[in-house]
Design a protein around this nucleic acid. Structure first.
Lengths: 109, 109
DNA sequence: AAAAGTAGTATATTTATTTATACTAAGGAG
DNA sequence: CTCCTTAGTATAAATAAATATACTACTTTT
């Protein structure tokens, strides 16, 4: 596997999968609380799946977590500076998807 | 799920997954033959997985297939004009991956 | 007392994706 | 004849990912 493919693979691992890119996209707008905000803005995601994705994104340094020791728990997630660097890529993914949606489904003969 | 997330999902479906982006990246350089070229340039991909991914990319209009009726079979795949439009996104994925590779693994404290 | 509220854990199950193995077609080489 | 070649199929098995369900902790509200 050559260098480009290796690099591509890294990106696929970190931002692809079914949910990570969506989570990062939502965090572009600022800090979000776990349940009330992230979970509701991505309604189809499962509770544990979300937790797992968040933990992995945290391990990869893209997001940070801030827990307030209150009851009931209050936990916020936000992009790190590093995580913000992926924003252009995410935007381009959204743009391409829009374009693909608009495209006529009739194949170009 | 809002419009941005929907669009994002389209992109994830079409180019993410474990291999599609890599296949498209390889096809950026021009037409490739199935076994001798694609399979060897992405050595870890499995035979049927490759066939399946290629078929899906074809169905989505990103690539075309040209079969020559010779024995043994000779089949070529190439990007459609539409498929070429995804090139900037792929390049950005490669760039981000490179950057992430180079990044120190020490977390930003 | 009992219930509600929230982030997270534990476990088991389902679903999706990838892989391994063996097979087909059709002609050329030996 | 038999074997080799290549794209593709068929089937089953293995792996990975996502999900459902139930649970914990701790305080406030009822």
């Amino acid at each position: 596997m050559d260098k480009d493919l290796e690099s591509m693979k890294i990106t696929l691992d970190v931002v692809c999968g079914k949910w990570k890119a969506m989570i990062l996209l939502k965090l572009n707008n600022g800090t979000l609380r776990f349940g009330g905000e992230i979970k509701k803005s991505i309604p189809l995601i499962n509770h544990q799946t979300l937790i797992k994705q968040l933990r992995e994104l945290e391990e990869d340094g893209l997001i940070t977590k801030k827990s307030y020791p209150v009851v009931p728990p209050w936990v916020e997630y936000s992009l790190t500076d590093y995580g913000k660097e992926i924003q252009p890529l995410l935007n381009q993914m959204v743009e391409w998807g829009e374009m693909h949606l608009d495209k006529d489904k009739t194949p170009p003969s």
